[in-house]
């Protein structure tokens, strides 16, 4: 039934209690997979946007889209994959900062246009925003220096142009 691909699905939902549970419940009940999920209010405070990254072949993605549309609280579903879109994720990385590695950490942060947002005697907290490739790249470079903790927001996405 076709190749399994990653899809970025952006949905507008009623900003009400229980809506997240309905969406998450739909995925779990039907055995669909959620790779990442980001939710927040839109400009209209009665509406929230969810950005869901999911995996599936064409038939599964079609079912996911239809099932989401069927939920009463879902106002609009767009599958951004297949059109031109931008996605970004933010990560906070707590990385060890010893005498010997501090300069190297700062150099990497600088190259990736990240920010040091907290400094303590033994560690830095770094904030980086970017697409998946960039995030993976910086994490790869920081890894040997000693990553203590990583917190990721999950991706948010938007179609380009109009």
């Amino acid at each position: 039934m076709g190749e399994i691909l990653r899809h970025t699905i952006s949905i507008l939902v009623e900003n009400k209690f229980g809506v997240l549970a309905r969406v998450a419940g739909l995925f779990s009940a039907r055995g669909f997979n959620i790779e990442s999920l980001a939710v927040a209010e839109t400009m209209d405070p009665t509406v929230s946007r969810m950005t869901i990254i999911t995996l599936g072949n064409q038939q599964i993605i079609e079912q996911i889209t239809k099932q989401l549309n069927k939920l009463v609280d879902v106002i609009k579903v767009s599958n951004l994959s297949g059109e031109n879109f931008i996605d970004r994720e933010m990560v906070l990385v707590k990385v060890a900062a010893q005498e010997s590695t501090r300069a190297e950490v700062l150099r990497i942060v600088d190259i990736f246009r990240g920010k040091v947002v907290d400094v303590s005697p033994g560690s830095y907290v770094i904030e980086v925003t970017g697409d998946e490739e960039k995030i993976e790249a910086i994490l790869g470079l920081l890894q040997p220096l000693g990553i203590r903790e990583v917190v990721r927001t999950g991706k948010v996405a938007m179609a380009r142009g109009q």
Binding site: Q59, E62, Q63, K66, Q67, N69, K70
Partner: peptide
């Protein structure tokens, strides 16, 4: 009437 029934 239910689009999710189709091609399920």
């Amino acid at each position: 009437i239910d689009p999710t029934s189709i091609s399920k």
